[in-house]
Amino acid sequence: MEITFEHVSHIYQPNTPFAFHALKDLSFHIPSGSYTAIIGHTGSGKSTLIQHLNGLLIPTEGRVKVGDFQLEPGKKNKHMKDLRKHVGVVFQYPEHQLFEETVKKDLMFGPLNFGTAETTIEKRIPEILEAVQLPEEVLDRSPFDLSGGQMRRVAIAGILMMDPNVLVLDEPTAGLDPGGRREMMDMFYNLHKEKEMTTILVTHSMEDAMKYADYVLIMNEGRLYMEGQPEEVLIQKKKLEAVGLDVPEMVEFLSMFEEKFGTKIPFHGQNIKELASDMLRVMKWGKCDE
């Protein structure tokens, strides 16, 4: 599903002394089936932005289009429930939203609410468990007896049960250890590819944005500050630092290397092995190309 923001502004508590302009004249386009990373420091408007994607918030000005759905100020959207079926949002610490007695009941809660038949739902369960890499044994257990990482997987499975076209991930790996983080990010990437979902990742990790996203949006003070492909945007050290963001570690290292050795190794999405080879060439021959 493609997503378009047209001059979207959002004001919390408008016309009061507490009025807060969280989004300001925001316009962008996300093509269907793409993987977009949204980056910005705390308070830049990221959370407000994603709450517009499934109609938890309606723009104060402008228009949000998600597939055929439109969100505009003042208009009641009769199809809100439908929209929420299509747009799955994994909020931060989604395991806090688990509440049922068993994992199975928790997984079924969403689709039952949307009126899906019980037999149809049950058929979906094995596939979803496999996607989030949980064994079937967990189904009859209480979600609260599972480890933190497993609880998070159950919560994510609950969202995948609705078979969303758009998956919004708000810092999905916060609090996980490095191994758990890698596994979970790879899992989302596989889902993205297999199910051809439109994926939107809110993150502080420049590494993840560089590794997984086709496109990045950089937010600052409620406005779109930069946008483009990660390898174009995430190398602009001065511009990013001006809004309190760091560049990926690789880019930072290359910049320090250039300062020390006076020779530039261009960033081309190389991995660490390739970087080591690049560095050896510079040290031996004073230049990077073979």
Partner: peptide, 20 residues
Amino acid sequence: IGLDIPFVAKIAAELKQRGI
């Protein structure tokens, strides 16, 4: 064991492997 090492330690390991 599912942990990681800092970026700079990774480069150092690669460089050592290449005889630096």
